[in-house]
Simulated scan of single mutants.
Amino acid sequence: MKRVAILISGGGSNMLALLDSMAEPGHCGMPCLVASNDPQASGLARAAERGVATAALDHRRFGKDRPAFEAELHRIITDHGADMICLAGFMRVLTAGFVTPWSGRMLNIHPSLLPKYRGLHSHARAIEAGDAEHGCTVHEVTPELDDGPILGQARVPIIEGDTPETLAARVLTMEHRLYPAVLRRFAAGDRTQLFLP
């Protein structure tokens, strides 16, 4: 059984999808912690309501000392006995100093069909480029932003008249399907790619 720490920065809708999935019979993962860099993140209360340990580590109190923030975050995660980490809307870029010790044990979901549109504003960028489809990707985390081995993707069509908001809503629905499916496989030792229609 893999003990999973989930990092969030907001409401944590993907976190909730992961928790629901891990509660199902036969899952090889179990949540040990939901942590946020924002003490006001509503996802913390939602995780606590489900009986999952939570922690808040306000990155602002560290100023520009990113290594100090990451060292404390690493300590909190390891103190909870985590075997792996899932980033679920965690809006802090993590440095190689944090990522490297978790190599092969940290997942992220990104709202684009990587390698397209790394970073922010992916929905608007896909529409502006005139793409016919968009989607989301679950990948292993490496020191390069949104660049690790791809473990799964799901696609949605871009419809005439789409705005970044309407497209984001449809992609989010697929994120809630894809991320739990990939985590279930990954926790069981299966790193083969999963592609949802």
Rank of each mutant, 00 (worst) to 15 (best):
H80Q: 13
L196V: 09
W102C: 05
N108R: 05
T192R: 15
F186K: 08
N14R: 00
S42H: 12
S122Q: 14
R60D: 03
L178V: 11
V93Y: 02
Q193V: 12
V52H: 04
F195Q: 14
M91C: 03
T142P: 06
I109Q: 09
S36T: 11
D79Y: 02
E49T: 05
R3M: 04
D58V: 07
M30D: 14
H27S: 04
S9Q: 02
L87M: 14
L94D: 05
L145Y: 08
L196C: 06
L19N: 02
M30V: 15
I150W: 01
D38A: 14
R191E: 10
D162S: 10
A168I: 13
H176E: 01
E133I: 06
A154T: 10
K64A: 14
R50E: 04
N37K: 07
P143N: 11
I127Y: 12
L196A: 11
D162F: 00
T100L: 12
L172C: 03
G26I: 08
A23G: 05
A48K: 15
E160W: 10
M174H: 04
A55R: 12
L87Q: 07
P149Q: 09
A35M: 11
L194R: 03
K116I: 00
D162P: 11
P67G: 09
G10E: 04
L18N: 00
S122Y: 10
N108E: 10
G51P: 12
I109P: 00
F69T: 10
R75F: 08
R92W: 10
D83P: 01
V52C: 14
E133Y: 11
H121M: 11
L194S: 07
L18Y: 02
S122G: 09
C28N: 12
L73P: 10
L151E: 08
Y117G: 06
T78D: 05
L196Q: 03
I150G: 01
T54Y: 03
D38S: 14
P157I: 07
M30E: 15
V99H: 12
A187R: 01
R125N: 10
A96D: 13
L151Q: 13
L19Y: 02
H139M: 06
V99D: 08
A187E: 03
L73G: 10
D190R: 14
G152F: 09
R170Y: 08
G119Y: 05
M22R: 07
H80Y: 01
T95Y: 08
M30T: 15
G97R: 04
I127R: 13
R125E: 12
E128Q: 13
R118D: 02
E70L: 13
P31I: 08
H27A: 06
I109H: 12
K116N: 13
S9G: 02
I150H: 01
